[in-house]
Design a protein around this nucleic acid. Structure first.
Lengths: 201, 201
DNA sequence: TCCATTTATGACCCGTCAGTCATTAAAGGG
DNA sequence: CCCTTTAATGACTGACGGGTCATAAATGGA
């Protein structure tokens, strides 16, 4: 008898608007009023779908990382170091810059919700494990230096590359600069992973 | 005849207190009241020495980076890649973690004072140039792969290592974990810089 | 000691913004 | 068309914190 709306769709629309605002101005600087305007509704309406600004952020983070995880999971396992490096490049698209600026707004000292840290930290732990799984066969195949521990190398690669993105995001570089720096770094990294392998092999 | 105080010394004391608070809670979460209490004075007194919270932060950043720059400048120019890597390690002490957390609180989207960005960005530009100056002779000496551009490699190293610190800072790792990850990353990096050079040379 | 001058204080002011709630609008069954 | 139930609205509230300023304290020379 009464008015019925699709809750999930509304939540999705709100999260879309919130993502736009957060990417643009950061989490702290975004007012609930901004999100409401972007979503084309009144501020009070937001609170029908999310208990608070913080809950909204957590839902956003969850959705964002679930999405990336799914996309990375679809990249086929690399058989060569070259293929691995190509996969890395795919997981570092230039539009990651803006999203990254959001995360350190959220993970900075001024905002420590352990649930946010868990979502983001959990993703990177998963990513390091994912890379370690790919390294092991590459080491056996002689594509990667055999003196490396798959686990340690994967952690280093994960931290370094995420860090690269953060560093460049902080200074607001343009996307073409980002791509140039990313590729230079990946080249250096590739040489470090390969080591004497290509010569010895 | 009247009461006289040493302005510079007072400013220094206030900056010390502010640094402690900012490192501990971040810039945004720190109240001027907190800084005042830590410095052992009333809130109003702070405003006799700094026009605003933001001016205080800028003075803090300037002092901090001038200090690091001076310390890095004192490290003698490396004659071998090993020496260079040792120098890198010195410029990444574990206590950099806390300071780094502060910078992304400050450089996050919620706070964009171009002067802050200039101080921090200027430091990293200087650092990349500094490393490039050290790379050039190392490349000529065959310590580093000759197919690398000193400039590009220095930029990659700077971004990657700063990024590593940020990444680890974000997730609040302990200092011993930090040192282990840092050393694993430096080893990978060293292999990438050396490349086939040690074999070819 | 007294006074002029600088320094210190903290209650107060005021703008901001997350979150609330009384009121209004929309939906759809009877 | 009416009425009940759910959804939407936006003016309002209350907490918070940066910055101010009237007042008080300290200093040191006369």
């Amino acid at each position: 008898m009464p008015k019925i709306v699709d809750r999930e769709e509304m939540q999705g629309r709100i999260l879309d608007a919130a993502m736009t605002c957060f990417l643009d101005q950061g989490y702290h600087a975004t007012k609930m009023q901004d999100v409401a305007r972007k979503a084309g509704m009144a501020k009070g309406t937001l609170y029908l779908y999310f208990q608070s600004k913080e809950e909204m952020l957590l839902a956003l983070l969850q959705r964002y990382f679930d999405d990336i995880r799914a996309r990375i999971g679809m990249i086929p396992a690399p058989r060569t170091l070259d293929q691995f490096m190509m996969g890395l490049r795919l997981t570092m698209p230039a539009d990651r810059l803006a999203a990254t600026r959001l995360f350190f707004d959220v993970l900075g000292p001024g905002f420590q919700d352990p649930r946010a840290a868990e979502i983001i930290g959990g993703f990177f732990a998963w990513l390091a494990d994912h890379y370690a799984d790919q390294f092991a066969p590459l080491i056996r195949a002689g594509e990667i230096r055999s003196d490396l521990s798959a686990q340690a190398a994967a952690q280093a690669v994960t931290a370094m590359l995420d860090g690269l993105v953060i560093h460049l995001a902080i200074f607001g570089v343009e996307e073409d600069v980002f791509e140039a720096r990313r590729d230079a770094t990946l080249a250096l990294l590739e040489a470090g992973l390969r080591g004497g392998a290509s010569i010895a092999g």
